[in-house]
């Protein structure tokens, strides 16, 4: 049996979702954004809600996410995607609304909107892609940058030591990696909070299940934010090849940001 005999429509077992447009992703080779886009599109297609979905794209690498999803989209100001999603969901409660943000957008400039949207318990789905760095602006420190991690604005590594003694003693203090996902999980307004990854097929499958649940909850529910963090990579700004970046992610990002459900059906998961 030749390859040509196998490659026939009736034998197709996997292809990119029809809910993605034909526009090639502008993301760097190996970037997790593409994988996350793919599985969101698959979920929306499987749930059959493409004709009532409104997405909100961020400022950051995913700013043009609206070019790739064949659903209606609004592009938000930096950090304001949760406010935008709130605005839409409040006036169109029957539409399926999701925001898509990176770590700088969601956990630095948009912290206020993130926390209050979660605290109000808006019935929306929030996707948070955490790669520990600012991608679009060229690799500066993010709130989720690991301690010791070198970025364009922490060229000697992020230092998170509290200054010794009273006041500033000359040691740069960039603060600690911000665990925003754990933080919002403690708010009564969040229903489902989980942290996933997409660096290998098994984790992509898990992440897809999580995203599906996050949308199903919205479709079937009346309130409560469904929040999915994806620990991802930034090969270009980590200055690694894609495969090496994924390995670095497993060895360095995951110990700081462990994977798994944090809150399910409004209840914190016991560790």
């Amino acid at each position: 049996m030749t390859v040509q005999d196998i490659i026939k429509p009736e034998n197709l077992v996997y292809q990119k979702s029809k809910l993605l447009t034909n526009k090639p992703f502008h993301y760097c080779p190996g970037c997790g954004h593409g994988t996350v886009h793919r599985i969101i599109a698959e979920v929306l297609e499987e749930l059959g809600v493409d004709d009532r979905t409104i997405g909100v794209s961020p400022v950051g690498c995913a700013v043009m996410a609206y070019d790739y999803f064949d659903v209606d989209f609004v592009e938000a100001a930096h950090g304001r995607a949760p406010a935008c999603a709130t605005g839409i969901k409040r006036v169109w409660p029957d539409k399926i609304v999701f925001s898509y943000q990176g770590d700088g957008d969601l956990a630095a400039i948009g912290t206020c909107e993130t926390i209050h949207t979660c605290n109000r318990g808006e019935n929306i789905t929030m996707i948070f892609v955490n790669n520990g760095i600012y991608g679009m602006t060229g690799g500066q420190m993010a709130p989720t940058t690991l301690e010791g991690m070198k970025t364009a604005t922490t060229p000697y590594g992020r230092k998170a030591t509290l200054p010794a003694g009273a006041g500033f003693d000359g040691i740069p203090n960039n603060g600690y990696p911000l665990h925003i996902t754990e933080l919002i999980a403690h708010l009564p307004g969040t229903k489902y909070v989980t942290r996933q990854a997409v660096y290998d097929p098994a984790h992509v499958r898990n992440a897809k299940k999580a995203i599906k649940k996050a949308f199903e909850n919205q479709i079937n529910g009346k309130s409560g934010v469904n929040f999915v963090e994806i620990v991802s990579n930034c090969n270009s700004n980590w200055k690694m090849e894609p495969v090496a970046a994924n390995k670095w992610l497993v060895e360095n990002m995951l110990p700081e940001y462990p994977l798994g459900d944090i809150k399910v059906d409004g209840k914190l998961v016991e560790k």
């Binding site: 049996m1 390859v3 005999d5 196998i6 490659i7 026939k8 034998n11 197709l12 077992v13 996997y14 292809q15 990119k16 979702s17 993605l20 090639p24 992703f25 993301y27 080779p29 190996g30 970037c31 997790g32 954004h33 593409g34 994988t35 793919r38 997409v198 660096y199 290998d200 097929p201 992509v204 499958r205």
Partner: peptide, 27 residues
């Protein structure tokens, strides 16, 4: 596909491809 005879159509490649450029077929 450098080794087409070994492919079992598991779709791991398609599932993990960030750019969605791989379609998988299986018989």
């Amino acid at each position: 596909m450098a080794e087409p005879d070994k492919c079992i159509g598991c779709a791991s490649c398609g599932i993990v491809c960030p750019d969605g450029v791989i379609s998988v077929y299986k018989v």
